[in-house]
Amino acid sequence: MDIGSAALVVIDLQNGFVNHHSRHAVPAVSDLIAQWTTTGRPVVFTRYFNYPGSSYERFFQWHRLQEPPETDIVPELAEAAAHAHKVIDKTGYTLFTPEADELIRQAGWTDLVFCGIATESCVL
């Protein structure tokens, strides 16, 4: 991996996903972001938004993450998100929306380093 052409992608660290089981990971992600940014390399955040009539509502009866404060980046990372290269909003699992694809192409990033807490779904 050419770390010079890499970006750190912080996946869905939002109030609605962080709970007492995962809160301990937030400081570790904060430290990673701080170390990453001291090298001058970019950080991208993603935010998941559920919506009325989504497949998550229809198939799982899951109605969460449709509005603030659940959709907000956790307070501990809000400043980092405000200074991130980009915050990508999405309505599905993947980072690779048309907006993100174009961002990655234009920036010339060849490697992406992912971090987050919901590793079985959001990060995967």
Results as ranks from 00 to 15, higher is better:
1 M>G: 15
2 D>G: 11
4 G>F: 12
6 A>L: 05
6 A>Y: 08
6 A>M: 09
7 A>N: 08
8 L>S: 11
8 L>T: 11
9 V>D: 01
10 V>P: 11
11 I>T: 09
12 D>I: 09
12 D>T: 10
13 L>H: 02
14 Q>W: 03
15 N>M: 02
16 G>D: 03
16 G>P: 07
16 G>T: 03
17 F>Q: 14
17 F>A: 14
18 V>I: 15
18 V>W: 01
19 N>T: 04
19 N>K: 03
22 S>C: 11
23 R>D: 13
25 A>F: 00
26 V>T: 05
26 V>Y: 00
27 P>H: 00
28 A>L: 12
28 A>M: 09
28 A>T: 09
32 L>S: 04
34 A>V: 07
36 W>D: 02
37 T>H: 00
37 T>N: 01
37 T>F: 00
38 T>A: 10
39 T>K: 05
40 G>S: 06
42 P>H: 08
43 V>H: 05
43 V>P: 10
44 V>M: 03
44 V>N: 01
45 F>A: 14
46 T>Y: 02
47 R>H: 08
48 Y>L: 11
49 F>G: 12
50 N>M: 05
50 N>L: 03
51 Y>V: 08
51 Y>A: 09
52 P>G: 14
52 P>D: 14
53 G>T: 12
58 R>L: 14
59 F>Q: 15
62 W>A: 12
62 W>G: 11
64 R>Y: 05
65 L>D: 04
66 Q>H: 05
67 E>K: 14
68 P>W: 00
69 P>D: 02
69 P>N: 02
70 E>K: 06
70 E>P: 08
72 D>P: 05
74 V>M: 05
75 P>H: 13
75 P>W: 07
78 A>P: 10
78 A>E: 10
79 E>D: 15
80 A>E: 10
81 A>L: 03
83 H>F: 04
85 H>F: 11
85 H>A: 14
86 K>H: 14
87 V>F: 03
89 D>W: 07
89 D>K: 08
90 K>Q: 11
91 T>H: 13
91 T>F: 04
92 G>N: 13
93 Y>I: 13
94 T>G: 13
97 T>I: 07
99 E>S: 03
100 A>L: 03
101 D>Y: 01
104 I>M: 01
104 I>K: 01
104 I>D: 01
105 R>N: 03
107 A>G: 15
108 G>Y: 00
110 T>N: 12
110 T>G: 14
110 T>M: 06
112 L>Y: 06
113 V>W: 08
113 V>T: 05
114 F>L: 13
116 G>I: 02
117 I>G: 14
118 A>D: 15
118 A>M: 09
119 T>E: 08
120 E>H: 12
120 E>Y: 06
120 E>L: 08
121 S>C: 14
121 S>P: 08
122 C>K: 07
123 V>P: 10
